[in-house]
Design a protein around this nucleic acid. Structure first.
Lengths: 341, 341
DNA sequence: ACTCATATTTAACGCGCGTAAAGTTTTTAT
DNA sequence: ATAAAAACTTTACGCGCGTTAAATATGAGT
C-alpha cells in the first residue's frame, strides 16, 4: 500500500481531478454520485486524509468548535461537555475542550488561544463572577459564541441554560408541602450567577407560600464547593442556625459537603421518622445518587441544555455568525426524589 | 491600531526581516537581545500572532501534545489531566484534551484524529481491557507516546503510573494491624489493568501476613463504578458474604457505592466502637474526603505521576521520539487515614 | 582599525490545499 | 436528437509561514 503524500497524489490514484477531490472533502454530497463512489473506493484502498493545517489555513471558515467550561473536575461540567462534544462530532465539527479551572487568568488565556484556532464557533460556560467581562465581550465580538450554564447579561449571541426559578420552586414547594419550609444554604459570594437567581427564587417562592425566607450565607472562595459546604455546615450545625428541620442547598456540591458534616455530627438526614433533618439541593450531580443519604435534587436537563446549546451554535454558524437578536433559552429542572428529603 | 495580516507586515512594522521574526517565534532566545527587544516592542504595539495553521503545516514538528484519558467524568482523571495540561503549557506546548468516555470506538477515533494533528507527542491513559491493542500499537509506532495510569505491556515509549502493590500493601497492612483482615471488593471483569495488580497484591500481602485472602467479585460492565459498587455491595451485605468486619475496595468509586449501600442498610462504617464495618480503598479520589464516613484510602501521587509523565514525554520528544528502551516508572501511594477504617 | 564569528537581510522556493476561470465532458430536459 | 445545465478537468494563483543560500551587517576581541 503506497503512502499518499498529498491530495494531488491521491487525486491521481483515484482518477479524479484535485479540485473535485477537494470539493468532495468539503462536502461529499456536492459531487456526482459516480465520482463520489470512485473517490470513496480509492479512499478505502489508500487511506488518505487531507492535511488539516493546510485545509484550515485556506478555508475561510474552519470546522473547529471550542467548548469551554469553568471547572472540568466538577463532573457536572464533564458530563455537559461530553454531550456537547458528541453533538459537535455528529454534526461534522471538530470540538476541542478547555477548562478554565476556576481561574480568570486561564479563562482569558483560553479565549486568546481560541482566537488563533479560528473556530467556526464557541460554546462557552463562563466562570461567572470571576470572568473578565470586557475580555469576553471582545471575544464574542470576534468569534460566534453561544453561552451556556452561566449567563453573562448581553454577552454572546445566545444563552442556553437552566431555569433557576424552576429548580428552586420545585424543591421549595416539595419541601414545604411535605414538611417544614427550608432554609437556603449558599456561599456568601457565589462564583456563579445561577446562585443569585436561585436565592432570589427561594425568597420569592417562600414569600408567595407565606413563609419567612431564611438565607444562610457561608464563607469561602473558589471552586472547592464540597469543602466549603462542609465547613459551612459544621458551623451552622454547631451553632444551631437552622430555624426548621429543612435545608435547601444552592447546589449539589455544597450539599455533598453539608451531608458529610451532618454525618460527622451524628445528625440523621432524610424523610424517615428517625431523621431530624431534611436536605435537598439543585443540579442533579452525577454522584448525587450516592451520597448518604441519597440526595433529593432538582436536576438539570442535561440532554436539552447540551442539545439545544449545540444546535443554537450550529444555527449561528450557518447564519454567518450573527443573530438578529440575542435569545435566552431556559430549560426547567426535573425533581429527583431520593432519601435526603 | 492597524490590523496586522501576516508576518510580512509585522516584520515591516517592527523593522526586522521576516526570517528573523520567524526565528524569534520559534525560539526568542535564538535572536540577538537587541532585535528581540525591537520585536517585543512591536509585539506590544500591534498584537500579532503567527497563524498556527501555516506554522504547523511547515514545521516538521508541531508544538501540539495530545492528552487522552479513558473517562473524563471521573474526577480522578479530570484532576490528572489538569496537572498534565499545566505542565505542557509551562513547557511551551499546546495540549489538547480528549476523553474516550469508556468506549473503544471513541478511543480509536481519538487516536485517528490525533494522527492528523501531527502532535509532537501524546500522553495516553488507555481504556485498559477495552483498548484495541493493535490500534494503539500502530499509533505508538507513528507518534511518540507515553502511557500513564494503565500500563499496556510493551506499548508506548514509557509508562508512568502508580505502584499498585504499594497501594494495597499499605491499606492491607494498616487494616490488619488495627483490626480484622479485609476482604477485597472488586469488579469481576475490571476495565483497568490496575485492578488485577491490586487483587494480586492483596492476595500476596494477605498470605505473607498469614491470613487467608478473600476476594469478592461483583458483576457489572462499563465505567459507572459507583452504581456497580452500590449494587454489588447490596448483594454482599444482604447475603452476608463478608468473612470479617473489614473491606478493601479496589478503588474509591466502588467504595463510594459501597458506603452508600452500607448507609442504606443501616450499617455503621468506621473505626468507632459503634461501627460494625471498616471500609478502605485506593485512589485518593477528590471527593473521598466527603463520603460518609470519610474514606480511608491510598492516594495516587498526582503531582509526581503527572509531573514525571509530562517530563518523560518532553524528554522523548527532545530525543527524537524514540527511547533506547521502555521504562516503567511507578510512584508509591500515600495512605490517607480518615474515618471509614 | 582589522579580523573573524555571528546575526541579519534579501531573494526565492516549497508546503498542501482552497479557489477561480476557462474549456471540456457528461447528464438532463425537451 | 439537440440544447441547456451541471459536473468535471486543466491551469494557475494565493494563503502564511518555514527554510535555505548568498550577501551584507554587526559586534567582540586583539
Amino acid at each position: 500500500m503506497t503512502k499518499i503524500k498529498n491530495m494531488e497524489e491521491f487525486a491521481a490514484l483515484s482518477g479524479i481531478s484535485r479540485p473535485t477531490v477537494s470539493k468532495y472533502f468539503h462536502d461529499p454530497e456536492s459531487v456526482r454520485a459516480s465520482t463520489r463512489a470512485r473517490i470513496e473506493e480509492a479512499l478505502e484502498q489508500f487511506d488518505y486524509r487531507p492535511n488539516i493545517y493546510a485545509v484550515n489555513q485556506n478555508r475561510k471558515l474552519t470546522k473547529n468548535i471550542g467548548i469551554v467550561v469553568p471547572y472540568l473536575v466538577d463532573p457536572f461540567f464533564a458530563e455537559i461537555a461530553r454531550y456537547l462534544e458528541q453533538s459537535c462530532i455528529a454534526a461534522g465539527y471538530r470540538p476541542s475542550l478547555f477548562s478554565s479551572h476556576g481561574e480568570q487568568k486561564l479563562e482569558n488565556e483560553i479565549l486568546d488561544s481560541l482566537r488563533s484556532l479560528k473556530p467556526a464557533g464557541v460554546l462557552l460556560a463562563p466562570l461567572g463572577r470571576a470572568s473578565d467581562r470586557s475580555q469576553i465581550e471582545k471575544f464574542c465580538a470576534d468569534v460566534p459564541t453561544v453561552l451556556f450554564d452561566s449567563n453573562l447579561e448581553g454577552l454572546g449571541a445566545a444563552f442556553i441554560g437552566s431555569d433557576n426559578f424552576s429548580f428552586v420552586s420545585q424543591t421549595v414547594e416539595y419541601m414545604t408541602r411535605t414538611g417544614e419550609p427550608p432554609s437556603f444554604f449558599e456561599m456568601r459570594t457565589p462564583a456563579n450567577p445561577n446562585a443569585n437567581k436561585r436565592r432570589k427564587a427561594y425568597v420569592e417562592v417562600m414569600e408567595r407560600l407565606g413563609f419567612e425566607p431564611h438565607v444562610i450565607k457561608i464563607d469561602g472562595e473558589g471552586w472547592a464547593f464540597e469543602e466549603i459546604g462542609h465547613k459551612g455546615a459544621m458551623k451552622v450545625l454547631e451553632r444551631g442556625l437552622l430555624r426548621t428541620d429543612s435545608v435547601l442547598c444552592s447546589n449539589d456540591r455544597l450539599a455533598i459537603g453539608f451531608l458529610a458534616a451532618c454525618y460527622e455530627q451524628g445528625i440523621r438526614v432524610g424523610r424517615q421518622p428517625d431523621c431530624s433533618l431534611r436536605v435537598a439541593s439543585n443540579d442533579g450531580h452525577p454522584f448525587a445518587k450516592f451520597t448518604c443519604p441519597s440526595l433529593t435534587t432538582a436536576a438539570h436537563d442535561y440532554d436539552n441544555v447540551a442539545g439545544r446549546g449545540a444546535e443554537t451554535l450550529f444555527e449561528l454558524i450557518e447564519s454567518g455568525g450573527k443573530f438578529s437578536d440575542r435569545t435566552e433559552t431556559l430549560f426547567p429542572a426535573r425533581l429527583i426524589l431520593r432519601e435526603s428529603a
